[in-house]
Design a protein around this nucleic acid. Structure first.
Lengths: 130, 130
DNA sequence: TATAGTGTATTAGTAGAATAGTACACAGCT
DNA sequence: AGCTGTGTACTATTCTACTAATACACTATA
């Protein structure tokens, strides 16, 4: 499992770990049951304090992505793994509804909203490649 | 201009002011050119330090919502409705970014996300007419 | 020009998040 | 039991966002 940490990105280190693990799980590059690097090992690899990794794993456990076994290790949760596409869409549906409601509230139509999304996507991609 | 502040909401006071003024402008309840309460007056009314209101106004000025005249007062920017629309889109941009990020984490592409939005929109409309 | 009302600037205090240091507790194995 | 590797708990430090206190500068108007 290879992660990339940007030290001065504004984004907290533990959050970067959480995000990247989430992503790896979502696209199936981390399989259910698979063991994740021990806290100290990952900490040493990322040149970070073990507590920081521990916090990331704690957050991932809260969200059901991983399962920790005290004294044994940390493993990708069976339930939290490459969720069926249907399930993923279900999760997004809530957020989508919130966005649509907000847009309606601001008198912004669906087409304009879609244009906005395309534009922001482009923007986010540019930001990523800098 | 009536604002409601929740002291222990996690949301910073200045941000609450910004959001509510933005909203009032977006729905036309604050017209271009209209004067906004002086910093000290609003501060006293909200039981808050003048600097906190000043910061909110500063943010609003940065975003082009209001225009400050040193020694005179603070006024809703008279750029008119096109700007208001711009501001509304700006508000939505934050939410859009959050949605796009979440989608990325779930490995859902932009096109699928847009399809989802269309579908949810339809669903919401149906719900409304029942 | 005097004065009252406005925004501005500088500094300081407070709280919380993020990270680190260190010692502890559990599991698995020999 | 003892050892090694794992997660955990507690504390301290650092940094930043937020808010506040206070003095300053500009504008309008009598």
């Amino acid at each position: 499992m290879h992660l990339r940490i940007s030290s001065n990105d504004g984004v907290p280190i533990y959050q970067q770990i959480v995000n990247q693990v989430k992503y790896l799980v979502a696209c199936g590059r981390l399989a259910p049951g698979e063991e994740v690097p021990p806290i100290r090992v990952l900490a040493e690899r990322l040149l970070v304090n073990p507590n920081t990794v521990a916090r990331a794993y704690l957050e991932l456990e809260r969200e059901g992505i991983v399962l920790k076994r005290h004294g044994s290790g940390t493993y990708i949760s069976d339930a939290g793994s490459p969720l069926a596409r249907k399930e993923r869409l279900k999760i997004l549906a809530e957020r989508a509804d919130a966005l649509l409601t907000e847009a309606h509230h601001l008198d912004i139509g669906l087409d304009d909203l879609i244009d906005l999304l395309k534009q922001r996507q482009k923007h986010l991609n540019q930001a990523k490649h800098e």
